[in-house]
């Protein structure tokens, strides 16, 4: 499931950003280009981050940026951006961030299979390290393929 949604045109590696807002925008820009979200989705993510704190930095070096379906999600979609220089999001235990996953879902269920696959990937330290350090999109795609046949 993950490989069906996270394709090469949704992946950018070693992107240079100056701050967390730019990092989140790098992720939403990829989804916007593919018409998966409305322009306001980015503002919603930023608003949630400012209102609830940096809880989306879910694990060391990894942020799972997202908002709610009604914030402007048009398709179940996900993008991946790796940052050239890790950036601080304000999360005491998991900063700085190197991997920015940005996802959107159109209802409360459509993304569950996607997240299940993603969770398995995030739990594999070795594969996460490989993604963080590679400059080859194909290398990332090969890793993602391995996590796409798992069922809930």
């Amino acid at each position: 499931m993950l490989a069906d949604v996270l394709k090469s045109d949704c992946i950018r590696l070693n992107v240079a950003c100056d701050n967390w807002k730019e990092a989140v925008k790098a992720g939403t820009d990829l989804l916007l280009e593919k018409n998966c979200i409305e322009p306001d989705y980015l503002a919603a993510i930023i608003h949630h981050h400012e209102a609830f704190g940096p809880y989306m930095v879910v694990a060391p070096g990894i942020v799972l940026a997202h908002a709610r379906p009604e914030d402007g999600a048009k398709k179940v979609s996900i993008s991946l951006v790796t940052l050239k220089t890790p950036i601080v999001f304000g999360n005491i235990t998991n900063d700085p961030v190197k991997l920015v996953f940005t996802f959107a879902t159109t209802d409360n269920k459509g993304h569950l299979a996607l997240l299940t696959n993603l969770m398995e990937l995030l739990s594999n330290e070795e594969d996460i390290k490989k993604i963080m350090s590679t400059s080859q999109v194909n290398a990332v795609l090969n890793i993602i393929k391995q996590y796409s046949n798992l069922s809930i």
Binding site: V58, L64, H66, F103, L115, T116
Partner: peptide, 15 residues
Amino acid sequence: CCGNGLGSSFMIEMN
């Protein structure tokens, strides 16, 4: 619980 109720909270529920 999480801020949005559909991302991290679901993933933690699975775990």
